[in-house]
């Protein structure tokens, strides 16, 4: 486990960041393309993808949060409601599309990947195989979340948190000044535009942290103007709204 963390660390030390910059055509950089919005954070160039995933191109790291796989099964078990049991395959299909498009070396799932530990067992054989296929040939990190606070029966590395300098990946944001990437809150933001309220899932970002939107299909959202998020994010916080095109706005409070 320690090895894998170190591995990421060493890549930073020995890889050549300059080379990467030269390789990418200048015109493609720092543009908000159809697939995402590029921005700088802690001296890293990151892309907030329209899918809700975060892409760290220099390190070829794809980060997603709050997949909540197996949610319908948990709801059936706990509440007796039988929701359409297709959210796991839908989430996996969207994750696969991102993996196919970006070919990441590392995938980090930022916690609450499973709706609970028992839900992890509820995946049917197809879904389990599918997940295994996605993991093949790359590093896969499961960060623990409050819904899945222990190891699950899938390949990959299980961690409470992970640092890949200068970024720290954990499930729930802290008040510290580290450059941290987290999930948990399922942020969404609303804008009133010419008498119409448009609500979208979003990334939140300030100097110290990025909070990812929930990637799972059956996931609701918490408004950026809620007390929890308004208190957490500094006054300069921005929101990247998901949509056909990712839009960058000051975080609505």
């Amino acid at each position: 486990m320690a090895g894998s963390v170190l591995g990421a660390y060493t890549r930073i030390l020995y890889g050549s960041p300059w080379k990467t910059h030269l390789e990418i055509p200048a015109c493609a950089r720092h543009e908000h393309t159809m697939n995402g919005y590029e921005f700088n954070f802690a001296e890293c160039s990151l892309t907030a993808r329209a899918s809700g995933a975060l892409w760290w191109a220099d390190q070829r790291v794809l980060c997603v949060s709050d997949l909540h796989l197996g949610k319908s099964d948990r709801i059936a078990r706990r509440a007796g409601l039988m929701l359409p049991p297709y959210e796991t395959r839908d989430t996996l299909a969207r994750l696969e599309a991102e993996i196919d498009a970006l070919l990441p070396d590392t995938v980090i799932c930022l916690g609450d990947s499973f709706d609970d530990l028992a839900a992890a067992d509820s995946l049917d054989e197809d879904e389990t195989l599918w997940l295994t296929r996605l993991q093949a040939g790359r590093r896969w990190i499961w960060i623990e979340g409050n819904h899945d606070p222990g190891p699950v029966d899938f390949g990959g590395t299980h961690l409470a948190e992970l640092t890949m300098y200068p970024l720290t990946f954990r499930h729930i944001a802290t008040k510290t000044n580290s450059a941290e990437i987290s999930g948990h809150y399922h942020p969404k933001a609303s804008l009133n535009v010419r008498g119409r309220t448009i609500t979208r899932k979003c990334f939140l970002q300030d100097e110290n942290r990025i909070i990812l939107p929930a990637f799972g299909t059956y996931t609701g959202g918490l408004h950026s103007h809620s007390a929890a998020l308004s208190q957490l994010m500094t006054t300069s916080a921005r929101a990247f709204l998901l949509g056909q095109k990712v839009q960058n706005i000051p975080m609505p409070r």
Binding site: H30, Y37, E38, F39, N40, L191, V193, R194, R196, I198, R238, L241, G243, Q244, K245, Q247, N248, I249, P250
Partner: peptide, 23 residues
């Protein structure tokens, strides 16, 4: 909707003086 959002985002960013951040 996309067009409205884009316009509004641009306006907000301009107002907030954030235009330079991701240049």
């Amino acid at each position: 909707n996309e067009r409205l959002l884009a316009e509004e985002a641009e306006r907000l960013i301009d107002t907030a003086g954030l235009t330079t951040i991701d240049k």
